[in-house]
Design a protein around this nucleic acid. Structure first.
Length: 486
DNA sequence: ATGTAC
């Protein structure tokens, strides 16, 4: 049997791209890493494998804890991690969802081609930068009060459409039609609501961005047709999350859960995995709060998308309807969701934690929107500013292999601090502009350095593994035209 | 990711 030794943790090769850490000691299940040897070399550089192993100690872990090909170290639980925990006898863990609840991406298609945009890059990037709020701290598209925040937490994108920040069709291209029904605004603290009220419609900082892209390759013509994607087409990618509101919510519940469920905490190998037992008051409250934060992040992306339509109208002097600027899909990267999965022939209710992982339901799944049900749900994988991004579709093997999930991006190779030592933001910007015709505008040079193309894994390799495993299949590839960030 | 610090 082929094995891989990573600093005290031995992985056994199950088959191509599937590696298993066998169950031992207090592990409740084995753990699996889905990666090529090249990616496994990178994944074993930090604490990812130890964190994955630790995750198998969570009560109710089902089949195995999984690390995606883009996995790296996170708070307690790997980014690029999937953990399906029994929703009746298991638990729910905020650290396995992530601080930025419903950090995610959406892609909007257009009928413009690269030729239409060439020569307008400067104007476009300046106008987007001036009109889409970004960076740390406050200032969003809507300045609101607590009542408005509560309506957003309760109603999600429905609120945005009622207020004129979108159209009915936008709802259909969103998971749960843009509204998580289990949201409980009363479970979100006053402090979190205060942080959220002047950040509605704002990108934030870090790896969050808005990018105008062109489609460079189509791999599955039939699926690309259904997604309305074709070569040379201009599309827009928006990557952001729930800002201070989600961050505060994660923090609030970690502290409450550590205190109330200290007995469970003591059984876990890492305090950062703090979890609330299924059925407990805190598990219900956290789930309601997380779902409300999910709604907030959806509205955030919706407002930014709508503002982008307005910017395109001014720059190209046509209406957004004439440019057919339609939402392809919106995917969540950081959530836990109650889902029914078949495990050993039995239907089970599970809290599927996807932290830096994307739902990738295949063709025929009833929760895939009708427009995509015949081909599988769109999966959007942002890469770096120098490498481009991918659109996949949920693969036929995803339900069996990964609880209907795949990777979420390229995955970091180095920490932000390390990135700032290696790169200078201004140089990165000049390089992208001169050698790749990519126009980048950011609030802070440090953010550009932190997000330099060189800090990311090879997105082609990540996607190749997803495709080879049949969990997310390649549909199209895009390359940046201009990018704004925090 | 984040009012970049409990």
């Amino acid at each position: 049997m082929t094995t891989y030794d990573a600093d005290g943790i031995t992985l056994h090769k199950v088959r191509d791209y599937v590696w298993e850490i066998p169950q031992e000691g207090d592990m409740r299940t084995p753990a699996r890493v889905l990666a090529s040897e090249q990616l496994l070399d990178e994944i074993s550089e930090d604490k990812t494998l130890q964190q994955l192993k630790n995750a198998t100690h969570l009560p109710g872990m089902t089949k195995h804890a999984i690390c995606m090909p883009d996995g790296h170290q996170g708070y307690g639980f790997p980014v690029g991690g999937v953990g399906a925990l029994d929703a009746e006898s298991g638990c729910i863990s905020p650290g396995a969802v992530g601080y930025d609840v419903n950090c995610g991406v959406r892609m909007m298609t257009t009928n413009l081609t690269y030729e239409d945009v060439k020569g307008h890059e400067e104007e476009l990037v300046d106008s987007l930068f001036a009109n889409v709020p970004s960076g740390l701290g406050g200032g969003g598209i809507v300045e609101s009060d607590i009542d408005t925040v509560e309506a957003i937490l309760e109603n999600g994108v429905e609120w945005a459409v009622e207020e004129g920040y979108g159209v009915e069709a936008d709802l259909l291209a969103c998971e749960d039609e843009g509204r998580r029904p289990d949201a409980d605004p009363s479970a979100i603290s006053q402090k979190a609501k205060d942080r959220g009220k002047n950040q509605i419609g704002s990108l934030g900082s870090g790896n969050h961005f808005l990018e105008v892209q062109r489609v460079t390759d189509v791999f599955r013509e039939d699926v690309a047709d259904e997604f309305d994607l074709r070569e040379d087409q201009i599309v827009v990618l928006i990557h952001c999350g729930s800002r201070g509101l989600g961050h505060q919510t994660c923090n609030d519940y970690l502290r409450k859960i550590e205190k109330t469920h200290s007995g469970l905490l003591q059984q876990l190998p890492d305090k950062e995995l703090a979890a609330a037992p299924a059925g407990s008051k805190l598990a219900e409250e956290y789930y309601g709060a997380m779902c409300a934060a999910i709604n907030f992040a959806w509205v955030n992306r919706q407002l930014i998308m709508h503002r982008t339509r307005r910017v395109f109208e001014r720059v190209f002097d046509r209406t957004w309807e004439q440019m057919e600027m339609e939402l392809l899909y919106d995917v969540a990267h950081n959530i836990a969701k109650k889902e029914t999965h078949t495990v050993d022939g039995e239907d089970r209710e599970l809290y599927v934690h996807r932290k830096g992982a994307t739902r990738a339901f295949p063709a025929g799944h009833p929760e895939v929107p009708a427009a995509y049900r015949d081909v599988g749900q769109p999966v959007i994988i942002p890469g770096s500013m120098g490498a481009g991004s991918y659109v996949l579709r949920g693969g036929d093997r995803s339900m069996e292999e990964t609880f209907g999930s795949t990777a979420h991006g390229a995955g970091r190779l180095m920490s932000r601090t390390q990135a700032k030592n290696e790169f200078w933001g201004g140089d990165v910007q000049d390089d992208l502009r001169e050698s790749q015709q990519v126009y980048v505008k950011a609030q802070s040079g440090a953010t550009v350095a932190e997000e330099a193309p060189g800090v990311y894994k090879d997105v082609d390799e990540v996607v190749r593994v997803s495709d080879a495993l049949g969990i997310g299949d390649k549909v199209a590839r895009t390359f940046p035209v201009c990018n704004i960030k925090g």
